[in-house]
Design a binder for these strands. Structure first.
Lengths: 341, 341
DNA sequence: CTTCGATGCGCAATCGATTGCATTTTAGGA
DNA sequence: TCCTAAAATGCAATCGATTGCGCATCGAAG
């Protein structure tokens, strides 16, 4: 029961001209008279002509689709990166295709495959936590398709990346806790040694050392940094004979877990335990007390990534040099870490 | 610097057969011998052949892409609907293309246009709050492309839909507040008269009347139901000489706003004011007290929508009859509305 | 030894838009 | 009126995969 879709040939027939002319008229080709352009556009309108991107894509070898791969779209961070990408991409007439991996390696591989088959013109990705092997991403590069990583990245692949200075984020968070008088600061980090977590950990460590404090490995708890993990990590810390008076979690969910457990155990936040998370998720300001955290300027990350894509796709980009953009994170101080003087 | 992509013709040449045979071999056509199938697959592997979906899409008139339109992907509700859709769609070899409208009408129109040009095989959508005119959606239907609405829907268009029983949701929430002893229950509803909000309001009203209480319009506050709106609505209510002892918000953010203001004003939740929200967003269990809310079974909504799509796309679907699936919502009682007896 | 139904594969058209090159039309000058 | 460069349009191939139809080949039955 499908309606017949109108093509440029239908327009051509109606006007007794050829499809070539119609095509050129619609694309505002300089060698077509204004008169025909007008008539063509008018009839296109009239018969409800809808350009077939697929046909154009096949002919041109470009789909005008930009693929985005994120672990999940339901986090403020990722969704605003996506928004940032869209802002730039749309003005350049690119449509985006958002795909979620749910942090699963197989799904990620399948997704890359799908995007490749869909002949996207570029891919902007933040890979899954599970991912250890990057050959599926190499495949994108091998085909000469621009690939840009953001947030979670990998220096081994020769790929442009947009990241924040996670070291600085970790440093600022920890330094802030020290300034609030914390003497024993714990850190929640990820089991998977992705660079972002390694860097946050380094920042934590350096901040401690720079302030004459010792780096105690028993205060560094590894997990997957989800809510439950944060809870468990906190419970584990509370079993120590000398419990910490500060927690810097490398994730927002982890911080919520720490907060919940603290409250349940009757430990005052921030006075007995001060907490700082990472990533300005919407819910961090919904907790009581509200959670201090690190703002990553996610929309700007998206803007930057999309801009790199546009550069790399442009013809005059003969000598490809992967670039790395590092944005500065910002500490947002809320109630969970602000002690009254 | 693009690498040459291998085509079926390359495979054909290597094996001294024709592209037809290669195509059939790859598609497991019964008239091709097992032997050639094997060799074809082997050489395809060897030269790194990647099927060009675009070419196939052009020829077949179907792209194997399912378009999804949501206001925003960073809400638990929408993202799990998307996940539900993906589950079903992927097993049927469909890829999804997620698009966000940010609740903006113009962006929605542009998005529909883009999906149409991309020749998606179907569209599953929840429209923007701003949307009053639905002609862009009619365009999808006119082209014979399956269109399914979920959550926010519209009975005027002859379109299949998957929704929850918002009336029941409103009823349950209100009834629960009544059972908790609330005598003056306020309701936050949306200014835009989308059916979901109208139904929740009706549920609220009917529950009141069914329990011998009066429906007082001055207790119904209209807004856009975001966090700030919820705060403002609550502030407005608190100016009344007879302040309410229960609030049923038609959104989760609205409920958070009400909770925040109550706490700031020293009003005890749930004892002085009991609060129930709508939609089981992740953050509703992060607040203190945790928020009671209505669970919408979002993933099932997605499953159902995708299944309808698959039905409608199948050839044997001659007589199209739009179906409407209504799922039952569930009341989740948390601290914000549970009074000690 | 012929016939016939399977079986295996090739031919060529097709999907719709684009574009280099050729051809026609137009306008302006001689 | 004729000529020519410029302007406008047409021709035909192309992108890569799919598929109806037709042509062989082969084994088995008659």
């Amino acid at each position: 029961m499908k309606k017949e879709r109108a093509t440029i040939h239908d327009i051509a027939k109606k006007l007794n001209i050829t499809a070539s002319t119609v095509s050129r008229a619609l694309n505002d080709h300089p060698r077509i008279s204004e008169a025909t352009k007008k008539t063509v556009q008018k009839t296109a309108q009239k018969i409800g002509y809808q350009p077939n991107n697929i046909a154009a894509a096949l002919r041109n070898g470009k789909s005008n689709i930009l693929g985005i791969i994120v672990p999940t779209a339901d986090r403020s961070f990722f969704s605003s990166v996506v928004r940032g990408i869209e802002e730039i991409a749309n003005t350049a007439r690119y449509n985006v295709m958002i795909c979620q991996t749910y942090d699963n390696y197989e799904k990620e591989v399948a997704t890359v495959q799908a995007l490749l088959n869909a002949r996207v013109d570029g891919v902007i990705a933040s890979f899954a936590k599970e991912t250890q092997d990057f050959s599926h991403f190499s495949k994108i590069k091998d085909r000469g398709i621009p690939l840009i990583f953001f947030d979670r990245s990998n220096d081994e692949l020769e790929v442009s990346q947009v990241v924040i200075d996670d070291f600085l984020g970790g440093y600022k968070a920890t330094e802030h806790l020290i300034q609030q008088g914390c003497k024993r600061i714990a850190h929640f980090t990820n089991t998977r040694k992705i660079s972002i977590y390694k860097d946050r950990l380094r920042g934590y460590r350096e901040a401690l050392l720079a302030n004459g404090m010792i780096y105690d490995e028993s205060l560094v708890v590894e997990s997957n940094l989800q809510l439950e993990d944060g809870r468990n990590s906190m419970l584990q810390l509370l079993k120590m004979r000398d419990i910490p008076d500060g927690v810097f979690s490398a994730s927002a969910f982890g911080a919520v877990g720490a907060l919940q457990v603290s409250k349940e155990k009757g430990i005052k936040v921030p006075d007995q335990v001060a907490i700082v998370g990472f990533s300005n998720e919407i819910f961090t300001s919904f907790t009581d007390p509200t959670l201090s955290t690190i703002e990553q300027h996610s929309k700007r990350i998206g803007n930057a990534a999309a801009e790199i894509f546009l550069e790399e796709i442009s013809d005059d980009n003969t000598k490809f040099i992967p670039q790395k953009i590092v944005l500065k994170p910002e500490l947002i101080i809320r109630q969970s870490s602000l002690r009254k003087k």
